[in-house]
Design a protein around this nucleic acid. Sequence first.
DNA 1: ATTATCTATAGATCTATAGATAATGC
DNA 2: ATTATCTATAGATCTATAGATAATGC
Lengths: 237, 237
Amino acid sequence: MAKSGGKEQRPRTKAEQRAATLEQILDAAELLFSRHGLNGVTLRDVARKVGVHTSLMHYYFVDKRQLFEAAFARRAGITSNRRMEALERYEREAGDSPTVVGALRAFLDTDLDLYISGGAGWKNFAAFVSQVSNSSEGAAMMDLYFDPVVLKLISVLRKALPGCPDREIFWGYHFVTGALMHTLGNTGRIDRLSGGLCKSDDLAAVKERLASFMAAGLTALCAAHPKNSRARKRLAL
Amino acid sequence: MAKSGGKEQRPRTKAEQRAATLEQILDAAELLFSRHGLNGVTLRDVARKVGVHTSLMHYYFVDKRQLFEAAFARRAGITSNRRMEALERYEREAGDSPTVVGALRAFLDTDLDLYISGGAGWKNFAAFVSQVSNSSEGAAMMDLYFDPVVLKLISVLRKALPGCPDREIFWGYHFVTGALMHTLGNTGRIDRLSGGLCKSDDLAAVKERLASFMAAGLTALCAAHPKNSRARKRLAL
DNA sequence: ATTATCTATAGATCTATAGATAATGC
DNA sequence: ATTATCTATAGATCTATAGATAATGC
């Protein structure tokens, strides 16, 4: 398949060839894993998609698990860093008065922008993240790549919501990431449900709505559970 | 395993035995599929868990796919109907003035209640729904079992949000179900992130927060996108 | 002379089916 | 006499490795 392209010239040096093949394998793996998960994809599937022999998968990645992790690692670090920088920039600019929606925009929109305008590879990665996030095999990878950004987001939200207990901020984040992951999953369900009014892959529409929706939710959550509310409830009894 | 229990007497009649074995197989399948997805589970895994031979899976369910679907169908219809009734009841009680939070409570809390107090089987089913919802194989099953309830929810939300375009209500629903599915997935990530402040399996805590959080989000969403807002925007240009 | 890729193959495992055995049913 | 369960096995497929071949590298 990739070979029959014609346009793509064989890379000259071995280093170039190695790099090109690696990238093709990772692209194919990313696409397939994003749709079918770790166990729904065989190394043969990946090799066939690239147009090389299965044994080449082992040559470059030892085993399936390592291919899976390499495919994830390739872009996970990039978006994680971008979002971290966006949060730090926002923190600087907002000074003493960061807002919930501002923090969420730095966290969510920065990510969505990449999937919107990063090309097909990033779109596949988006669905891949959703798969990983929802699978038991993926837990460690999510923690490894995304804990720092998430904790950064939490720290900015803390400043934006001074009276709010940490617990509520974490629950709020849990809902935020649920909506984001479900969006990235791109299952097409909302398309069918809404009769085409909404499209799963319309990340621009999601970007327009997600941060402000979630900011309202978080704000309401904190209003309903002010600090020391447990102590207050006890007194009220 | 199941055989060694001792307590459980061999059912007398064949019909009883059949029913008991079917249920054991479905329980095991539900548990395993909920953790590892369709492709992460083999018929051998299920058979081993029940303590019978693999070929019995084929005797009762023909093939793996049908076992998967039967395990899902067993409880999906039940919770779907319960929620439908809760929504209809709420609609009757609320008369002309249903609220967003009221509709969401009927939809979300009715479901969560079942997972909270329905026993281990229902807890496994909750994670199973999340798996199915996030997989490409599961799309048709989600549509089949849950479209009617979701569309009922939408219709109540429409009454609760008279000025709101359908599109916004559907996007709002998309975020709601994302948060719910992520919760049901029970991945343990929020436990680790929050250092134990929140627990993935604490559905009571989620129930306390989810509906009101989402009601605030939906209300804000509709406020930001009133009907004919597109036409207005055009005029504003 | 090194490295990218392929051929051949071992060994494990999986789904599925045919037919045997051991229970219950009348 | 019927049905629940098991044994045996076919055929497909999967991961992984060893070793051959065909390129680039100096």
